[in-house]
């Protein structure tokens, strides 16, 4: 009896190992099912979904105008103090003072891509961009100014 059990155990063991080998070996003759991507080489073909959160950017139109009113809703919504908004006062031709955006400081090194600032923005001035390759040699390069030089607020955005 003992020998019979022993032989059956050995048979089952070898069979189970061969079953596993068959599964892996199968892919050797079916290379079409391999899904590995060669990342740095396929950078041009990378197709990231539009919702992918890579970094915060400010949208500018062709007239170099943005929709940021400097209301600091994003600054308040941010959990990590990633955003700092510096405002100035624009004086209109009639002599009225109006609060406007001076500098939109964005600390990419502190950002966790939680999307809360984009959700909080009442005018849709900022959005998430797909760029994810952020490595630089100096961390000061990660502090960015999001509004382009010379840009101003779009007409009609309050």
């Amino acid at each position: 009896m003992f020998i019979k059990e022993y032989i059956s155990d050995v048979y089952k063991a070898v069979k189970s190992l061969l079953t596993g080998m068959k599964t892996t070996g199968g892919y050797f003759i079916r290379p079409g099912e391999i899904i590995t991507q060669q990342y740095p080489e396929n950078r041009d073909q990378l197709n990231l979904p539009e919702r992918f959160r890579g970094e915060v950017v400010m949208l500018h139109d062709e007239n170099n105008e943005h929709a940021c009113t400097g209301c600091t809703a994003c600054e308040l919504a941010c959990p990590n103090a990633t955003i700092k908004i510096i405002t100035k006062f624009d004086v209109s031709p009639e002599g009225k003072k109006k609060k406007a955006l001076d500098t939109f400081v964005y600390h990419l090194e502190l950002c966790t891509m939680c999307n809360l600032c984009v959700e909080a923005c009442p005018t849709g001035a900022i959005t998430m961009a797909q760029n994810f390759e952020h490595s630089v040699f100096d961390r000061s390069k990660l502090t960015k100014k999001l509004n382009q030089p010379g840009s101003k607020i779009r007409e009609g955005v309050e």
Partner: peptide
């Protein structure tokens, strides 16, 4: 997840 939530691991 990436398509709907925008992130792969820490979705929020």
């Amino acid at each position: 997840m990436e398509e709907t939530c925008g992130a792969r691991l820490t979705m929020n």
